[in-house]
Amino acid sequence: MITDLHKLGIKFFNKSGADMPLTDFIPVFHDWIQNNRLDDLLIDVADYSHVPAGPGTMLIAHEGNYAIDETGNQRGFLYYSKHEVPGDTVAERLASVCYRNLSACKLLEEEERTRDRMSLDYGRMEIFSNDRLHGPRTDEALAAFKPQVEQFLNRLYPHTDYEIDYKNSDPRERLLAKVMIHDAADKADTLLPRTRTDSL
């Protein structure tokens, strides 16, 4: 049942800086751990820079994983939850997941070592279920997922049009929405208050 879906992920694609060496993010993530820069319990950094089109450089947290992710040969900033996320509905949980993602994106925007070398496109994103039991890639689950995604997007971009593509030719892949926002925000800060919930 999609209502039990908590393992959710959001990836914002890069606008620029997709050629910045993945290993350059390793010290940045270690600094975040040292300085408790995020709400999650940050555990360690995992380096997969040697794997083509892989999860890149990861920041492993208890609640979820953050990554400069290159899956599908498209670099972006990814966060996905691994445990229960606050929120009564999937839409609310997506907001929680997005809040965590944007909090990290904001740090990248502020970080001296990254801010002039890369930027993220908050108008191009992927939203997915990382749980094939509660959110499988079936017509039924997709039908239940769609309104939740839209509800979340209406909250993230209340006055902006968007397009969503739910198509994925590979049935083995996860339940996925590819989103294109027409008039996207430039900064994480613009979006952060829209994703914040009291329980965060």
Binding site: H50, A53, P55, G72
Partner: peptide, 12 residues
């Protein structure tokens, strides 16, 4: 496989 690693997408 570099360092013995293969991604989920690659494996599939």
């Amino acid at each position: 496989l570099p360092l013995g690693d293969i991604t989920s997408w690659q494996m599939r």
